[in-house]
Amino acid sequence: MDISGLKEKIDSEISRIANIEDLKRVKVSILGRKGLFADYIDQLKTLDKELRRDAGKAINEIKSWADVRLGELEKHFNDIERQKREQDSLIDITMPGTTPVFGKKHPITLTLEEIIRIFASLGFAVAEGPDIETEFYNFESLNIPSDHPARDMQDTFYIRPGVVLRTHTSPVQIRTMEAQLPPVKIIAPGSVYRCDNDISHTPMFHQVEGLMVDKNVRFSDLKGILSIFIHEMFGPDTPLRFRPSYFPFTEPSAEVDIGCVICRGEGCRVCKDTGWLEILGSGMVHPQVFRNVGYDQEEITGFAFGMGVERIAMIKFGIDDIRQFYYNDIRFLSQF
């Protein structure tokens, strides 16, 4: 049996392959059931053992070589084929993509959720109260007597004598303390109402109230908790200060200012050249408030705070007209 020239013969056939069809045909003619190798293998049977082994080995070597050659060629032609297909179906990738629809939360909600998240992480639970309150809960129980300026009709919406739209979320303090014994650690988000409508006031806005009451709650704790809040909300480098102030239901009372985010404390129109922005009111719960809810003011102390959600959102997002929150202009809403 003569296998000399076999490799060269195969090589010349393969070299003539010009396309995938040629390849298929040549592959059959070489490796097919009735192909070249089948012929040789048939012939092997006629040889005696010794020769058969050597010839078999040589044929196998040529066959695997041909296999590899043909395989490479097949891959080559497939690649060409695929590249052609890809070229034929070429798209303009710069056409706009198909965005899935998605909605957005109102910036007040975004801000509220952030405030709640921070205080929840400090162990405050969420409490609620009605929007329509009695004067007792909105004023008297909070040590705001009936002749206090805050009770003017100019500030408060009245439903009827004795019933008002709550002017702050502070009544939730009273309702919570009436319903449970200390310790109390709550925040109360919600809508509040005042008779005002201009660039910096809307007749409805949102507040978050906070209250912590226990044995040995100190003014220094109020400072500690609110400092954590401010740094979480406005960034760890935000300057802040606690400034004595007056609220009928806290004593001592403190206003908390942060360094103006617009001018970085240099003084500008937004901070009225003070370099500071008022962020929240706070203080130690007034003993009279404890007496009003039947807590023993000799035994327990507490702090309370309240902040305007719109104000914080305005500062965070740079919004200069509070009424924007309530126009619900899609061009406004889609920015958050």
């Binding site: 162990g123 912590m212 003014f219 704790d221 001592p252 403190a254 007034h286």
Partner: peptide, 30 residues
């Protein structure tokens, strides 16, 4: 009342001289 006097002392002493502390309280998941 007492709280009013404490307020006066804190005011004159200066809020900035009152430390920031963490409340001593029982941890309770919310």
């Amino acid at each position: 009342e007492t709280a009013d006097i404490i307020e006066e002392i804190s005011r004159v002493h200066g809020f900035e001289h009152i430390p920031d502390t963490s409340p001593v309280a029982v941890l309770k998941p919310q």
